[in-house]
Each structure stands twice: as structure tokens, then as C-alpha cells.
Design a protein around this nucleic acid. Structure first.
Length: 816
RNA sequence: GCCGGGGUGGCGGAACUGGUAGACGCGCCGGAUUCAAAAUCCGGUUUCUGAAAGGAAGUGCGAGUUCGAUUCUCGCUCCCGGCACCA
């Protein structure tokens, strides 16, 4: 055996072992405890980037660790293969999206294998293949039958030059990214999924997700945005229909000084027909970009409609305005404005000279001045007639009952969450399985005609979808009456594919149903790992789909992911690695140069998984250097020959110390990998142990035995992280088995015991000395020892000791 | 703007339940080895002060709670992620 560490040889050998033994191919075995370990599947861009390496390595470490715990581990991999980049590549280089995508998948799969990830490739799922999206289309038709999908008009970014709908990210400063034309808001009919029907359940089940980070649950809670309020109606002068508004603050009703409706509201449209100014304003609102961030930060503008509503309590006239910050899609598209007690209403009133009145005062009697700023806290109602003096809940109830009795309002729950628009006017996606018939309207494609196959041999120009120019695609017969009809040419949002792929891994080859009985064995996912950027959308849609599958009787699980780990981004020079910024590092080059283990080690060592990771070329070298040291230490040890049986009673102090360190390290690394997911500290602890091994003077037979125990431990503890080198070193240490099939080591409680412990001594909270005391010393004994320390005496001097705090095993604080 | 997260040596980070700030690694400095260099090995490395022992300051900024705060509370600031058609 060549003694120098040669990663290529070592890694090839380990990979061949895993392949030959089919280590990572798993079938359903009801007698074994399963563990489903999953990573958010990648978009096949063609290039493995550092973000991929990071997330897949995290997941692989967890999977390998759980295997060593004796669990039956499934770790699959697949491709989120539909999406815009394929169309962009097609426009730029004239390659059809399908060809480009399949080539990328082939390239990336080779790179994954080189990194030693333990995937069951027999279960590979590729979303752009008809075998996959066929079931997505089937599911959509089932939802259609259940009334969980519907069609309505909604707003898109329209590029008038390219005659194309643009994604938000394709709109730069209000202009199309390719044409540079001013983008317009345009209403077109689109398909929606009723995620709001599940809003309450999506919210309530968050409480069951103990294995999810609080931050993600909190973001989802805020996204759903459940609020209890009252929907009440105001009569409008000269209108038969009253104007309905939703408010969470009925206690401020008497502070209403104006009302505002969205630009798309019928009252605004009506006013526009008589007022050119209003018409112009509404036109300008149409040029607004559709993104929420822009809506919130833009200047709040409005225009009086020239009509008034009647305040339902006072009977006074309240002017009606149209305003650009009122959203048609939220609530009723109209708001009652209380500038005294709402920040946005205040800003708008201030700007347009509308009156601001105070109807709430702080309960604690603090003076407030609503001419300076809105007071938005709950408080006591004033200047409000019959509800004067009430606090929030009483006032809420009083107003609610009164309006309910009068038949002018009711208690309502409102959500910020909107139904999910799934239509995309793009080519490279799953065709929406709908046929439009002049007589029968929209009809779902019958099951026996599925899949609706996306033609792959097309030319993409960037102007509209090629499907619209393909009669062979869009010409169809109505499934109901048989008359010639037109097939839908829109495709699904790619989030639809990623909302159920995790279930399909259980039965990827099933061609008679979307899922089969294997789903029940593997689902839910035990550990899901992916980027924080998916904290809301992807994870919310996936949870929604899981509930849909459950309600269709296809799954028993309420939630798809039991434990969630959200990993931070990979940065270079403080910025996200991206081609635009030219700060990418190609994992392939590094693997060729240092080997996969070095890359895996650096990734896991540089930062804990949830934090952003700053890339460092020097850090990679350090990882490589450590592996060489590790290799050399094991080889040098092996050269000393077989170790004697360890005799714990015959150890000297240094040997006992190393043995304690070994077992402390086993305990720490088990906790770090198994519970905390802090792989960086697990590696640091293993490094410390190896350093301690190298420091031990190991000539005697017992010290070789202690050293053997330590090195065996390091190899097993690091094997989930750097599996190839550990595979080889384990056999160098004389074992017949492989770490991948070995049980995770247990620590020996008795090895952790210590006779004496070091305790620090503080005087007034400042460190003044260290003392060594018997491990079983009493508090009084410890305090006595502390006062005897020379430096401590210097600081205590002749002052009275007012208090002594003793924390056994840690410190003494003497307060003078 | 709103929601969520973060700020600790020259750098990445550690300190897990309020108890030794800076583990581990990188970089740098010194030494060994070498004809020389690379590689490797040994030692040092928060800042200021001091020959040393030691002392003082120190976890984005400002307050507070506590015997004791990187950790808890309040206010501010800067950076990152998300905001519904990027994936």
C-alpha cells in the first residue's frame, strides 16, 4: 500500500464499494425503522454550484449518520426540470429547451456521483418527463372536479414590444429586460388553486411542526395573515349598492374621515367615466409594477371621486377617494380610513389635507398628539358616542352587534394569503389539461387522454409561447360534446411540480396511479433540507398539496416534512455567488484538485448550516491539510502493529486523559450531528481529538491500545462527513467491515469521570484566579479554596465579603 | 414599506440552559528540516500596557435588568433573505 494520501484512488475505491454493494438502494421493509432524508431538488442549470454542494452534503451527512444509527434510510434525487432558464438558453443559443435540459441533467449527475452522495438513483424523478407531469395533470383534473380550481382574471406584467408576459424579475425599473419597453399591467384569465380553503389548517398545523425552525413558522404565519374583523357597509350617495369594507379596528369607526377604493374598483371605474382626472389617474395606476415591495414603497397617491359615503353612525358625509395603495385583491378592495390611528391613512390624509380626528387614547394616560403621528396602539375609545370609554374588545363587540342587528355588517375572518395563480404564459412547463369549448366552456382533459404531452421539438423566439402557433397542439375535440375546441396553451407554474415530487420518490415507476402503497411507508419526509429562500412559497405550496393528496385519499399524512433544516447561502466577498457578479467558484475544479472529501469537509467546517457561508480558497487548503494529517496519523499508528486489548486499570494519567477525550468527543460529535446539526463543531472536536492523539507519547503497549481506540472513534465520527477517506482508513486500522455498515460508536460513561476539576475565581465578576479542587468538593470547601488563592486575596484585601456565589464545576464569584 | 434572520480578533467561526470571550481552522510571525524553495513539523498570535507576574479595555451603537450579559429587555444602526411570474 502506498502510504501517501491520494484522494482520487481512495475515492474511486470507496465509490466502487458502495456501488457494488448497492449500499444506498432501499426497498420498503416494514420491520425496519425508516428515515426519509430529502434535499430540495435542483434546477438542472448544467453547472453544479457551491450552494448545491453545501445543501447536498448537509443532507448526505445526516443520511449517513442515520444509517449508522441503524435506520433504513432513503435518500433520493431528482430534477426540477421545467423553468425559464431553459427558454432563455433556447432564445440565446437556439437549442430546444428539452435538449438543453436533458444534457444538463446528464452533466450534473456525473458531478453528483463524484461527490460521493448516497442516493438511490433508481428513484430519480425528472419533472419535464410525461411520466411525471401526467400525474400532475391528473391531479389538477381531480381538483377541478372537486371545485378546488377556478378561472378568473388577474394582473400580469405585459411587454407590449415582445408581446409576452414577463416575470417580476424580468421587469427592471418598470421596463422589459429584453425590449426595454415600458411594462403594462394587463388583466388576463388565469387558473387558480384554492389554497385559501386550507388557510386555517395551514395556520393551525404550524403548531404541530416541532421540527421546523421558529423563524420559518413565523414567516408562514405572517404570510397567511389571519385577521379577525368586521365587514360593514357604508351607503353611497346616488348608489343603490352600499360600499363594503373590512376592518380589524371597528373601535376606530368614529374616526373615519374619508374612504379609499382600489383603482380597479367598480366605483372608481364609474367615476372615471365622468371625470377625466380620475380616468387619467386610473390609467397611471396601470403602469404600476405588480410586485408588493414596490406597492409599499411607492408614493401614496390618490384622487377624490367626487362622491361621498354616509357614515353609518353619524350620518355625516365621508368623501370617497381612489388610491394607489388599496389592493383590489385584498378584502373588498375598499378601506375606511382612520388617519388618527393608522399609519398609512395618516400619511395620505396629511398629504391631501384631509381631517385627522382622535378617537383612541392610551389607557395609561400618556399624552399623544395625532397631528404629529398616528397612534396605532390599542387604547380607550373617546369622542365616539355610545362606545366612549370602552377598550378594544368591548368596543369591537359593541360595534359588531349593532351592525349585525341592523343587517349592515358581520364578523369576518380575513386572510392576507391569496389563492395561488398557477397559469404561466410560457412554453417550457406542464401543459394545463383543459380544453375550451364554445358550448361547454372549460373542460378538463379526461384521464384516458392524459398526459397532454408538451411537444419538445420547437423553436423558442422569446415572443409569445410557441404552443400558440402549433395547431397540432392546440386543436382538440371537446371532451363533453365532441365539437372542435381549443386546448389551453398556458403551462403550470413550476412550483406545482415541486409541490408533490417528494411523494413520487416513493413510487417513481408506478404507471397506474400517482402514488401507490409505498407512499405510506416512506412519507412523511423525516428530514428536509434546503435554502431559506424557500421558507414561504415552496414550503407553503408543498404543505397545501400534501393536504390535497390526503383529502383525495392518496396519503395519510397531514404534513409532508417532519423536520426542516434551512441552509444559508454560499457567499464570496460578502455577496451571493452568481455569474452576473463573476464571483463563482467551480466545485468541479476543486474536486479534481483536492478530492471530494476536502470539498465536503470545508463546506461543513466553514459555518453552521443555517448561516451564510463565506467562501475561502485558503480554507479549502486547510481542509486538505487536515485530511493529510489524519491519513498520516492513521498510517503511522498502523505501522506500529496490532494493538493489545485495552486494560483500563493499567493506564497512566496521560493515557486516561486521552481516553477521556475520546469518549467526550464521541458524546459531543453524536450530539452535534444528531441533534444540533452543527457539523462545524463536530469537525472541530474531531480535530482536537486527533491533535491529542498526536501529542501522546505512545511507545507502551497500553498507549497503542488507547490510541487505537481514539483513531477508531475519529474514523467513525468523521465518516458521514468525509466518507471516502474514512472508508479506506477503517480498513487500514484492520477492520473487515466498512463504516457505512458500521454502528455509530457509543461513549463509555465511566471514562468521563475526573478526580479533580478546575474552577475559575472571580472577584466582583472579574476573573482573578483558577483553582483545582476535588470533583466532589462541597460549596463551602470550594469557597474556602477560592479565598486562599494569592491573586484573589490581593483583590479581596481587607474588604468585607458581601456575598459568595459558587457554581459547582464552573466558578466562584466573590462580591466585596 | 412589511415579515424573518444576522453583526464576536487580520479572516471563517466557538462559547448549547445568564457563569473562564476568542475552541477549531485560516492567515501572519518565529524556529526546525532543506544547498534552496515547496511541502512538513514545533512554538507564538484580541488590543493597549508591562522585562515579567500582572493590569486595563473589549462581542455593531446607546440604555436597562443581574453578583455576573456575546446570551435577557428596550431603543437605534448597518448587512442579508422573502414579498406571491427566479428557482
Amino acid at each position: 500500500m502506498d502510504v501517501a494520501y491520494q484522494p482520487e484512488l481512495v475515492e474511486k475505491k470507496a465509490r466502487e464499494y458502495w456501488d457494488d454493494k448497492r449500499c444506498f438502494e432501499v426497498d420498503e421493509d416494514p420491520d425496519k425503522e425508516k428515515f426519509y432524508c430529502l434535499t430540495m431538488f435542483p434546477y438542472p442549470s448544467g453547472h453544479l454550484h457551491m450552494g448545491h454542494v453545501r445543501v447536498f452534503t448537509i443532507s448526505d451527512v445526516i443520511a449517513r449518520y442515520q444509517r449508522m444509527q441503524g435506520k433504513h434510510v432513503l435518500q433520493p434525487m431528482g430534477w426540477d426540470a421545467f423553468g425559464m432558464p431553459a427558454e432563455n438558453a433556447a432564445i440565446k443559443r437556439g437549442i430546444p429547451p428539452a435538449k438543453w435540459t436533458y444534457q444538463n441533467i446528464a452533466d450534473m449527475r456525473g458531478q453528483f456521483d463524484r461527490l460521493g452522495y448516497g442516493y438511490d438513483w433508481r428513484r430519480e424523478v425528472t419533472t419535464c418527463k410525461p411520466e411525471y407531469y401526467r400525474w400532475e395533470q391528473w391531479l389538477f383534473t381531480k381538483l377541478f372536479e372537486k371545485g378546488l380550481v377556478y378561472r378568473k382574471n388577474s394582473i400580469v406584467n405585459w411587454d407590449p414590444v415582445d408581446q409576452t408576459v414577463l416575470a417580476n424579475e424580468q421587469v427592471i425599473d418598470g421596463r422589459g429586460w429584453r425590449s426595454d419597453a415600458l411594462v403594462e399591467r394587463r388583466e388576463i384569465p388565469q387558473w387558480f388553486m384554492k389554497i385559501t380553503a386550507y388557510a386555517d389548517e395551514l395556520l393551525e398545523h404550524l403548531d404541530k411542526l416541532d421540527g421546523w425552525p421558529d423563524s420559518v413558522k413565523s414567516m408562514q404565519r405572517n404570510w397567511i395573515g389571519r385577521s379577525e374583523g368586521i365587514e360593514l357597509s357604508f351607503d353611497v350617495e346616488g348608489e343603490d349598492e352600499p360600499l363594503s369594507v373590512f376592518t380589524t379596528r371597528p373601535d376606530t369607526l368614529m374616526g373615519v374621515t374619508y374612504m379609499a377604493v382600489a383603482a380597479e374598483h367598480p366605483l372608481a371605474t364609474k367615476a372615471a367615466s365622468v371625470s377625466p382626472d380620475v380616468a387619467t389617474f386610473i390609467e397611471e395606476c396601470k403602469k404600476m409594477h405588480a410586485a408588493e415591495a414596490e406597492m409599499e414603497t411607492m408614493e401614496k397617491r390618490g384622487m377624490p371621486l367626487g362622491i361621498s359615503a354616509i357614515h353609518p353612525i353619524t350620518g355625516e358625509k365621508v368623501p370617497l377617494w381612489v388610491a394607489n395603495f388599496v389592493l383590489m385583491g385584498y378584502g373588498t378592495g375598499a378601506v375606511m380610513a382612520v388617519p388618527g390611528h393608522d399609519y398609512r391613512d395618516w400619511e395620505f390624509a396629511e398629504k391631501h389635507g384631509l381631517p385627522i380626528t382622535q378617537v383612541i387614547e392610551p389607557v395609561d394616560g400618556t399624552e399623544i398628539d395625532i397631528s404629529k403621528a398616528a397612534y396605532v396602539e390599542y387604547g380607550r375609545v373617546v369622542n365616539s358616542g355610545f362606545i366612549d370609554g370602552m377598550e378594544f374588545q368591548d368596543a369591537f363587540d359593541a360595534i359588531a352587534s349593532r351592525f349585525q342587528e341592523e343587517g349592515r355588517g358581520k364578523r369576518t375572518v380575513n386572510y392576507r394569503l391569496r389563492d395561488w395563480g398557477v397559469s404561466r404564459q410560457r412554453y417550457w412547463g406542464t401543459p394545463i389539461p383543459i380544453i375550451y369549448c364554445e358550448d361547454c366552456d372549460a373542460q378538463p382533459v379526461p384521464e384516458d387522454q392524459l398526459p397532454v404531452v408538451l411537444p419538445e421539438d420547437v423553436e423558442v423566439t422569446g415572443v409569445g409561447s410557441p404552443l400558440k402557433d402549433m395547431p397540432e397542439f392546440y386543436e382538440a375535440d371537446c371532451p363533453k360534446c365532441g365539437k372542435p375546441a381549443r386546448r389551453e396553451t398556458d403551462t403550470f407554474d413550476t412550483f406545482v411540480e415541486s409541490s408533490w415530487y417528494f411523494s413520487r420518490y416513493a413510487s417513481p415507476d408506478c404507471d397506474s396511479a400517482i402514488l401507490d402503497e409505498r407512499e405510506a411507508y416512506w412519507m412523511p419526509v423525516d428530514q428536509y433540507t434546503g435554502g431559506v429562500e424557500h421558507a414561504i412559497l415552496h414550503l407553503m405550496y408543498a404543505r397545501f398539496f400534501q393536504k390535497l393528496l390526503r383529502d383525495l385519499g392518496l396519503s395519510a399524512a397531514d404534513e409532508p416534512f417532519t423536520n426542516l433544516l434551512t441552509q444559508g447561502m454560499v457567499l464570496k466577498d460578502g455577496a451571493k455567488m452568481s455569474k452576473n457578479k463573476g464571483n463563482t467558484v467551480d466545485p468541479k475544479e476543486l474536486i479534481d484538485r483536492y478530492g471530494a472529501d476536502t470539498v465536503r469537509l470545508f463546506m461543513m467546517f466553514a459555518a453552521p448550516p443555517e448561516q451564510a457561508l463565506e467562501w475561502s480558497d485558503d480554507g479549502v487548503q486547510g481542509a486538505s491539510r487536515f485530511l493529510k494529517r489524519f491519513w498520516n496519523a492513521v498510517q503511522a499508528h498502523a505501522a506500529k502493529g496490532e494493538a493489545l486489548q485495552l486494560d483500563v486499570s493499567a493506564l497512566n494519567n496521560a493515557e486516561r486523559d486521552l481516553r477521556r477525550k475520546t469518549h467526550q468527543t464521541i458524546a459531543k460529535v453524536s450530539d452535534d450531528i444528531g441533534r444540533r446539526y452543527t457539523f462545524n463543531t463536530a469537525i472541530a472536536a474531531s480535530m482536537e481529538l486527533l491533535n491529542a492523539v498526536n501529542k501522546l507519547d505512545s511507545a507502551s503497549p497500553q498507549s497503542i491500545a488507547v490510541e487505537r481506540e481514539a483513531l477508531d472513534a475519529v474514523v467513525l465520527l468523521l465518516s458521514p462527513i468525509v466518507p471516502h477517506i474514512c472508508h479506506e482508513l477503517w480498513s487500514v486500522l484492520g477492520h473487515d467491515s466498512a463504516p457505512v455498515e458500521h454502528r455509530w460508536p457509543d461513549f463509555d460513561e465511566s471514562a468521563l469521570e475526573q478526580d479533580t476539576v478546575e474552577i475559575v475565581v472571580q472577584v466582583n465578576g472579574k476573573l482573578r484566579g483558577r483553582i483545582s479542587v476535588a470533583a466532589d468538593a462541597t460549596k463551602d470547601e470550594i469557597a474556602e479554596f477560592a479565598l486562599a488563592d494569592e491573586n484573589v486575596r490581593r483583590f479581596v484585601a481587607d474588604q468585607d465579603v458581601r456575598k459568595t456565589i459558587v457554581v459547582p464545576g464552573r466558578l466562584v464569584n466573590i462580591v466585596v
